[in-house]
Write a protein that binds this DNA or RNA. Structure first.
Lengths: 363, 363
DNA sequence: CGCGCGGATGTTTACGCAAACATCGATCAC
DNA sequence: GTGATCGATGTTTGCGTAAACATCCGCGCG
């Protein structure tokens, strides 16, 4: 198979006279070239290329052979122009520094590939409205049929107006299900599970190391934490804020280590939990004996923390899959125009949680 | 600005008769529509759209106004067809589970955007040759001018033949500089720095927790480790192998903890170092007092490990930048056709390395 | 035996854009 | 004044593909 293809000397054959494909590239065979070589019309080549019926097996073979000889590749620009669709999904996201975004992106790319769609990445370096607007204006020129947005919606809002009207949008991490199609993790459910687990172990209350203010995910985890405590009749301690990074978790941990009555902390993600563990360790507060810690995300490394982290598992792969399914159903005008889909979470209990210290001997 | 755009009612204006843009989408204004409304020829619209000279300020204004009113967006498929280039770079990579790949990808996307190029993602779920071949065959149909490959070249080899001949390729993490343009981290330099640092602290030798066999990066780190030890006249201990994951580092660590004479370990990445730290801790071997550990990559979390990890910093952003620069210079036929560019590394000394235990009182 | 039918194939056309060429005034030099 | 020149704009053409329509041929049936 590999032997017959003229892989190394593609300039040998009868080159079509005009039309170099790109500024400096080699000319690339077109349908007309294949048709000429195969002795058929270009329409027949098109039929073979698209696997349509109505072509003799014999003709089909000949065309295939000609294609192979010339190294023919369909020109996707012409195809897109003719068909009116690009078979491409654009993904807009903030810096790929958070595990969640990356894993979601990966799942999106995989699912999209399975559906015959390509994925184009639109990075937004800094999460400012200007930057977002910039990404969207790049998008306007872009060859995409649909867009998946992985970011906070309040940044999206300002930029929305400039979206090409025919492009479908699905949003991750947002509460704007009334305006967009939203796919997200069940933040509240995961948070509830975490808080209940800690209360169930006997902790009087649970502290919360929250994500940054701008984040909807952080917001919802904090809200759910407060609600879960309130539901159990407990008083929520003051909220401590980080920025998702391990460093911010460490700084917050130094503060929390000073509170003798802090026996259980729910960190809004695993990275901050990591920093928290280090800070507690440095202050001589043992985990889980003195303090219990729970994270969120279940990044692969969390099983190797010291101690292995109890955390809320997110199914990013499922989120990505659902995003693609939703956006494609919108493109095909099958699905609903808006609404929120939640992906369930699951508590993974490891070694960073235990009963509070006072409890073994007494109360 | 936002007030005048007909963002919500795009179907109101005079719709062009034919040519719905996508299967189920709205018709989208074309140059001809804009030209009609502005009372000029479509060529003038094209000139305005591309910012060419030779258009009166007055005309330009009118065309702009018409564009805005119709919500005109250039059709990139038509543009690509006409120009013969897509202004898109394809990136082929394995699962985005390793920090390095992700950070490189991010830098690639950012640099590409700066150059006016979009980035299309081609995920390869499983690193088998079949999968890689599949990615490349998808690529054949894809609208890209160039490709950046982030993966082991020996997997690439089998798939190369099917690459469209006019597409330029740049490879990361490879030793195939004689056949491709390669951009990579200076693995050997970083490894040397790590080994020398440990020897300089007084360790008799340095153990190595290597990456998986298939990886060139792992291969080169292991080779450089052996060479650095040999250069200092030391005997390399048996090599221990992991698979980049923290879990594999943990398993390796349990084995290493049994060796009393093991006082210094160079782990081929930070994740494995994390698992290693946990295993050593569980076996009562303190870091850095009993055992020194060095990682590779300098992932953000490594500063929050227990203890904060001494590691070799990789400049992924620079790697990505150089990839884009290299591939674009190839597209423009400016740069050399092959060769390897190495990005320097830098040792970041934190708290996981110290002089070996025996040394304080004696030898 | 001729007509109609249906499958295989060819021809025309248009997708939206932009390069190449054409046109049309106005201005300027002599 | 006349023609050369130049800037602004219009017209034509073709990029590669695929839908729509046209053609051709052989076969079965009346």
């Amino acid at each position: 198979m590999a032997g017959s293809a003229p892989a190394d000397v593609p300039g040998d054959g009868p080159e079509p006279a005009g039309g170099r494909r790109r500024g400096s590239g080699r000319p690339s065979a077109s349908m007309a070239d294949v048709a000429r070589l195969a002795g058929v019309s270009s329409q027949t080549v098109s039929r073979v290329s698209n696997g349509y019926a109505g072509v003799t097996e014999e003709t089909r073979r000949q065309v295939r052979a000609a294609m192979k000889e010339l190294g023919y590749r369909p020109n996707s620009a012409a195809r897109a122009l003719k068909r009116g669709e690009f078979r491409t999904i654009g993904v807009i996201t903030f810096s790929l520094s958070t595990t969640g975004n990356v894993r979601t992106l990966e799942a999106i790319a995989t699912s999209a590939a399975r559906e015959g769609y390509a994925v184009t990445l639109l990075p937004v370096a800094v999460p400012t409205q200007d930057e977002v607007r910039g990404a969207f204006s790049r998008l306007e020129e872009l060859a995409v049929d649909a867009v998946i947005v992985i970011m906070e919606v309040h940044l999206l809002d300002a930029a929305t107006l400039t979206l090409p009207p025919h492009v479908q949008v699905v949003v991750v991490d947002s509460d704007a299900g009334d305006r967009y199609t939203v796919v997200d993790t069940d933040q509240a459910g995961g948070t509830r599970a975490a808080v209940r687990h800690l209360l169930g172990l006997g902790h009087r209350t649970v502290w919360h190391l929250a994500g940054p203010e701008g984040s909807f995910a952080a917001q919802r985890r904090a809200d759910a934490w407060r609600a879960a405590l309130a539901g159990a009749g407990r008083v929520p301690p003051p909220l401590v804020r980080g920025d998702w990074s391990a460093g911010s978790g460490y700084r917050a941990g130094r503060e929390l280590a000073g509170h003798e009555d802090c026996t259980a902390v729910f960190a809004a993600n695993d990275q901050m939990a990591l920093g928290l563990l280090r800070a507690l360790h440095e202050h001589g507060r043992r985990v889980p004996r003195d303090v219990s810690v729970i994270g969120f995300d279940d990044i692969p490394e969390s099983a190797s923390f010291l101690p292995p982290l109890t955390t809320v598992h997110q199914d990013f792969a499922e989120v990505g899959r659902l995003c693609v399914a939703a956006v494609l159903s919108k493109v095909r005008r099958e699905g609903p125009d808006r609404g929120t889909t939640l992906v369930p979470t699951r508590l993974v209990v490891r070694d960073s949680t235990a009963a509070p210290p006072g409890r073994a001997d007494g109360t």
